[in-house]
Design a protein around this nucleic acid. Structure first.
Lengths: 213, 213
DNA sequence: CAGAATCTTAGACCGAGTACAAAATTTGGT
DNA sequence: ACCAAATTTTGTACTCGGTCTAAGATTCTG
């Protein structure tokens, strides 16, 4: 199964090549200023081929989404039996951060990434859409586990909101020019605070710091 | 200030007329099957004028967004001093439901609305974007109140996730063919459950089931 | 090596959205 | 009521993302 034949290998290579060429152009000149025809040209390929690999122009830039979706699904599915989703996800976020993973948001590269993203409403819109796909996936997995549709959707949407808040907090600070090392250090507390709120709620109930149950 | 002059009144009328014509066409034939040129034609106006009032085609259908945004902002801003946002928002959701307001999601009309919405990815995408705008607005208002950026964003995003979950729950059931009266009755509990989760968190902490009062 | 299956290509085509300058309409002052 | 300024509407032409189709090139199977 590791062997895939020439055709499949060529396709993977072409896909990556197109994506790389496109990303390079986007970074240099901004998303909207680069046309698909231009990308095809620079990649030595026809416009149709570009769309063949990437249904929308936005997918040329946001092409890690599927991987992320699969990884998040694995986090939920493969967590120890009986462990609350929030606990597994909190741990995963800490791991991302510790590994200096791009998706932790606490990495130098987000500057370039974010400036391209913000350069285009279409790109922003698509990334929001991807966030929604994550929520839908989580809701599906959880509903499968518990059979409780409403509960699954509630948890999935709250969880997704938590993840994006954590990510955006880091990105915002790095964009603002904060020192990377400092942001990385602070993110540990950000993750914990976010998940504390998720687990204990926003209600004024008992003081947030402490749990009596 | 009630008097607005002929020009302003005409603009309002034209705007509404275009929107009505467009909505009619969308309902009959689906969003993507109707071109803007066609709408302009049917409305007896030029294509440019349509875009003059509605920057994107999607706005022709989702034109209540600004009102909603303002109303939600008022709910937060005008709530009794010291009252938690979640409490004010919960009350507001119950009011929407009691008033059989379209935005409660528990109303016959959502069928047509939703079928048009689902008929177009662009429309779905735009509505998700609007949801994001709501979250951003709430985050802004809350940050203004407390000065706590991270806390504001956390609460705003969780709150928005709660609102959309409530709405979608109702819509999904009505689409599925459930009896309207029954859905409306059940929504009271849905709202309370959703806000209970929001206020008390998804953690395993205290038993989630209790407290129906 | 032959034929089936798949991928790529060129070119025409569609619709959303923009640019621009001319024409129509409302406004405010007299 | 009339004129000039401000604003809105319109027609036309254009760009760009995305789809369609039919033909050509490449890889696969045996």
């Amino acid at each position: 199964m590791a062997e895939q034949g020439l055709r499949e290998r060529k396709k993977q290579a072409t896909r990556r090549m197109i994506s790389d060429v496109a990303t390079g152009l986007f970074v240099r000149r901004g998303f909207d200023a680069v046309t698909v025809a231009e990308i095809a040209d620079a990649a030595g390929v026809s416009k149709m081929t570009v769309f063949n690999y990437f249904p929308r122009k936005e997918d040329l830039f946001l092409d890690r989404h599927d991987d992320r979706l699969r990884e998040l699904e694995a986090v939920v599915r493969d967590r120890p039996a009986g462990e609350p989703v929030a606990v597994a996800m909190r741990r995963y976020q800490h791991e991302l951060l510790a590994a200096r993973h791009p998706l932790s948001g606490a990495i130098e590269g987000v500057r370039g990434f974010w400036s391209v993203l913000e350069s285009s409403p279409a790109l922003v819109s698509r990334s929001i859409e991807q966030e929604h796909e994550i929520a839908a996936m989580l809701a599906g997995v959880l509903a499968e586990e518990t059979g409780d549709e409403l509960g699954a959707r509630l948890v999935a949407n709250l969880l997704t909101a938590t993840l994006t808040t954590i990510y955006h907090t880091s990105v915002a600070r790095i964009i603002a020019g904060d020192d990377l090392a400092r942001v990385q250090a602070d993110q540990v507390a950000v993750i914990d605070r976010a998940f504390d709120v998720l687990e204990q709620g926003i209600g004024p109930g008992r003081d947030r710091v402490h749990s009596d149950g």
